[in-house]
């Protein structure tokens, strides 16, 4: 991990929602507008844009429709989980088959590497970068969605919302706890590390005495909580709740301290087949309208917008220390 991104990510966690509210959305607006008009004309001439994104199509539909309607540029929205999406992007780029115009995934290591290899265009070329909160901007990427790591619980089994992560160590829930496999993504390791810092070095050892079930993804974990197969799933994310809750599932999210958050990062391909449409897409995604559409039931870095959730108070975590502790965390969980 490079120093630079480390600092930026760290800053991200140090600065709360107040900073976002304070950041100016109106700086040099005239310049941006002139820029946007030129960009729209060029993008329209290109006709289409290909976007690789981890956000589910159903959730992103409003964003796709909004972009197409506003600019008259068709969007080919390719959605996969981060692993295969990055594999595809890397193989395409290495073989000179430039397909994606822009990519939005959760893997910070990918962005560092892609930046070093010159695969990504400067994000400053995107008009909306001018006025986007600085702590969510890097040289070649912008954080376009935030995922706070919280705790999902079965409302029938627990009754009241837990206020503390210590609920994971309550003997009452032995055999009824689902936790995520930290091999599914770096930020799950960060979450274990943060809890270890907060609850003491013996946290994982105590957790193991609860005979937790390990799952690969929170999508599966929260459904197990809804089914009554588990009482608690941790970590879990706000965007997983609305669908289940709308169907009457007895599941809710508890905000327990500390809260750490991972992000979805956006980059524009340096050799995008539709370079102007690519920048226009990034521009729309970073604008208030695009942010609201892309982050339904999620947290928008731009601040709370219609349909998005408020940004919880996020605790800073030393990512480098978390990475150093990764091997030990795996071992304590019985993983090799």
């Amino acid at each position: 991990m490079t120093e630079r991104r480390m600092d930026i990510t760290k800053r991200l966690f140090l600065q709360g929602s107040a900073a976002i509210a304070a950041s100016s959305l109106f700086g040099s607006q005239a310049f941006a507008q002139a820029n946007e008009a030129a960009l729209v004309t060029a993008a329209k001439a290109e006709g289409k844009v290909t976007f690789y994104s981890v956000v589910p199509q159903a959730a992103a539909q409003e964003f796709i429709d909004g972009f197409t309607k506003k600019y008259g540029v068709a969007m080919d929205y390719q959605r996969l989980t981060t692993g295969p999406l990055v594999q595809r992007y890397v193989a395409e780029t290495q073989s000179g088959n430039f397909t994606a115009d822009a990519i939005a995934v959760t893997d910070n290591f990918f962005f560092e590497d892609a930046t070093a290899k010159g695969w990504l265009a400067p994000i400053a070329d995107v008009p909306a970068a001018n006025g986007y909160p600085a702590q969510f901007l890097d040289k070649t990427s912008a954080t376009v969605q935030l995922l706070p790591h919280q705790l999902a619980y079965n409302t029938q089994m627990l009754g009241a919302a837990p206020t503390d992560w210590n609920v994971l160590l309550d003997p009452k829930w032995k055999g009824k706890i689902v936790v995520l496999d930290p091999r599914n993504g770096f930020f799950t390791t960060v979450w274990y590390y943060a809890l270890q810092q907060k609850l003491g070095a013996g946290f994982i050892k105590d957790l193991m005495k609860q005979e937790p079930q390990l799952v690969q993804s929170a999508v599966q974990g929260v459904q197990q909580v809804a089914a009554g197969a588990a009482a608690i799933c941790a970590p879990a994310y706000p965007n997983l709740m609305p669908d289940l809750q709308a169907k009457g599932a007895p599941v809710a999210l508890a905000a327990t301290d500390p809260v750490i958050a991972s992000g979805v990062y956006l980059g524009v391909a340096a050799k995008a087949p539709h370079p102007n449409a690519a920048r226009l897409l990034a521009h729309y995604l970073m604008s208030p309208e695009g942010q609201a559409a892309y982050n339904k039931a999620s947290v928008a870095p731009l601040g709370q917008l219609p349909g998005t959730l408020p940004l919880p108070k996020i605790t800073p975590v030393d990512l480098k220390a978390a990475q150093a502790a990764q091997k030990d965390i795996f071992a304590q969980l019985g993983l090799n």
Binding site: Q223, A226, A227, G228, A229, L244, K247, G248, A249
Partner: peptide, 11 residues
Amino acid sequence: PFWSGNINWSV
């Protein structure tokens, strides 16, 4: 509507 161990036949 969602997986549940308690089957609610009406939904």
